[in-house]
Design a protein around this nucleic acid. Sequence first.
DNA 1: TACTACCGCCAC
DNA 2: AAACGTGGCGGTAGTA
Length: 477
Amino acid sequence: MEDLARDFLGVELMSTEQLLGTGRAARKPTAVEDNEAAEFSARRAEAILNLRPRLEAEMSNLGVDYLFHEIELPLAGVLADMESEGVAIDVPYLKQMQEELGSQLAAIESEVEQVAGERFNLNAPQQLATVLFEKLRLPVGKRTKTGYSTDADTLEALRDKHPIVPLILDHRQLSKLKSTYVDALPQLVDPLSGRVHTSFGQASTATGRLASSNPNLMNIPIRTELGQRIRRAFKAGRPDHVMVSADYAQIELRIAAHLSGDPMLLDAFKAGQDIHTATAAAVFKVPIEAVDPGQRRLAKIANFGSIYGQGEYGLSQQLGITGDVAREFLGQYWSTYSKLREFLDDLRRQAREEGFVVSATGRRRAIPDLRSPNFQLRGAAERMAINFPMQSLAADIIKIAMVRLQREIEADQIEGRMLLQVHDELLFEVPRSELDQFAEKVPRIMTGAYELETGIEVEMKAGPNWADMKKLAVVRA
DNA sequence: TACTACCGCCAC
DNA sequence: AAACGTGGCGGTAGTA
């Protein structure tokens, strides 16, 4: 509102944050004086009234009417429902983890003190760098703007050089997960509902994805054992309910195949093959059955990297292979998916000419640096342009599904609720008695949200919490 | 105490 | 010199 009023009307509006304050000094909306609230609201109301015709015209000029009226506007209500519904977390369970992790951290800290010969703050990268690279004289790897880097990649390379290094890495993981999730989440439980209520940002990403904040429920750990334990705290909060999750399988890669029309990629999806195995088979020129796990891993990383604009160097770093091997592999990769390469090249070229990109639903992204003389800025801009069509269409497909799903849930007067969206996944809390209904409804609507030449695949899971879920079905359509 | 820059890292 | 896109956030350190 503040930005729009400034840009279109030349009016300065007070922000809600300015009105209420932030952090410790924040006050509740009810604490605002009547005259203050009246002026705040009246100024905003006036701005809205004057903005409307300006914005309607702007949207019409830009061709984003469909996006606005058919997707974003109805979605707003769905997101409001989800925020208000909240999700249950097991607070006593997290409190217990808090203690356990606390003593594990203390134990590591003592060990580090023994090995380093001094006590220092392991959470301070600067202090850590002094100990590692000056006191212990470990070989210096990457540097940051302000000194030695101590990031995970750097430390991983030093793992066997000194016994302190694995201790630091363990400490990092524990301390990250404890402070960000185990300590923080219980404090964010709403006393009224007994659940955590995220805020979905509907207009805070450049690609049309949602964002989640206070707390961010889109980055709950899953990868490691400890991460799984944290995720386990997100549970069905009502009697005789279960968590149901539905996620799109390789949606962005399917979109890449669809938009580029690449025959190799399309065929692999149409044949229902595991896409990464199929990629490995084609690139290494071996039969599907002969693909080994290492080859599949390489192909999987290349498949993701390609739609992010990753180059040789990035691929070699991520895989821990030499630049030569990465170059050789990418050569084979792009000759396999030559139509995809053409598509991405055209995209880059057209984006550079226009200075913006447009998605299949009309979503636009302006990328001014596409014409920058600065190699680095231009490179980053081109990668944004390359990623945009896939990421943004995927975002719109799941949004369409959410709007339709919520309509059907309301129409059928179903008890089960949509709780969260995590980019390609929807999470529901469902009465056991409605499980069959959801298992039919959700994948039907999700796969039907958009027509892709590859088809769309949705995997359904259910269980007592967000970590322990069993596969219900995989639906392709 | 509040704010910001920076480093680092969680997710998709 | 940098090298893979989209985010949010915790902790430290410096400053107001």
